[in-house]
Every structure is written in C-alpha cells, then in structure tokens.
C-alpha cells in the first residue's frame, strides 16, 4: 500500500511539500523469530521521485529506516506534469505511483 500526499494544483514557482509512504516491514536482519532463527533482512533500498520526467529527489535506505518508510520533501512547481514516486527493494522489485500536478 502506497500513500501519497501532494497538491493537485500549484502556482508557477510555488514550493510544494510532498509526502510519500509505502507499507513495508523494513526487516533489519537483526531480529530473531520465536524459534531463535534470524529473520532475513528485507528492506527497500531506493526511492526516486521524478517530476515531468526528471529525477528531483532520490533516497537510499539502510536498515536504520523505520518500517513503512516515510519521506517528506519539497518541489518547486515549474510546469504541469506527472510526479512519479517509485520504490525498489533489495531484490529489485519495484512499486510506483503517479500524481498529476497542474501548474497555473
């Protein structure tokens, strides 16, 4: 499950805040299950946000990022276009979500 908070419209040059969260255990690889066996590491490694096709924000995560990784950052509204959010886990699996920003 992905949750995005981003405005639909903005004025030219306005700085908007976007928030993105994806549901994921971010298993650290340091925990053990009830039997005492190590639970293997399973984390999201990369986050990327592209606006109008250009990468505007990227993140690399380590096990020190909490479960259900959350990010809030800013974007300068320069043109009408899609804002794409994508996450890639350590196995290369990706998830993505797109929002449209209309700039007036």
């Amino acid at each position: 499950m992905i949750r995005i908070s981003a405005p639909d419209t903005a004025e030219m040059g306005e700085i908007v805040e976007v928030k993105a969260m994806i549901q994921h255990p971010m298993e650290t690889g340091y925990r053990r299950d009830a039997k005492g066996d190590v639970i293997p590491r399973n984390i999201i490694k990369q986050f990327r946000c592209a606006y109008g096709g250009n990468t505007v924000f990227e993140a690399t995560f380590f096990p020190g990022i909490a479960a259900n990784p959350f990010l809030a950052f800013c974007l300068r509204a320069t043109r009408t276009g899609p804002i794409e959010f994508s996450w890639t886990d350590q196995h290369g699996e990706t998830w993505s979500e797109t929002r449209q920003l209309t700039v007036s």
Binding site: A59, F62, I65, P69, F70
Partner: peptide, 23 residues
C-alpha cells in the same frame, strides 16, 4: 549500521528540507 540514509536533491526541491522516520 552507522549509515541510516542518503538523500540526493537539487534546485528542483526549492527548499532543502527532508523528513523521515528512523530506528
């Protein structure tokens, strides 16, 4: 692990401001 996260941003961000949640 000492490194928790790395962020890459630029002038498109408009404001150098990032929030997240850490362990």
């Amino acid at each position: 692990i000492a490194t928790i996260a790395e962020f890459r941003l630029g002038p498109h961000a408009g404001r150098a401001q990032v929030s997240t949640r850490v362990r």
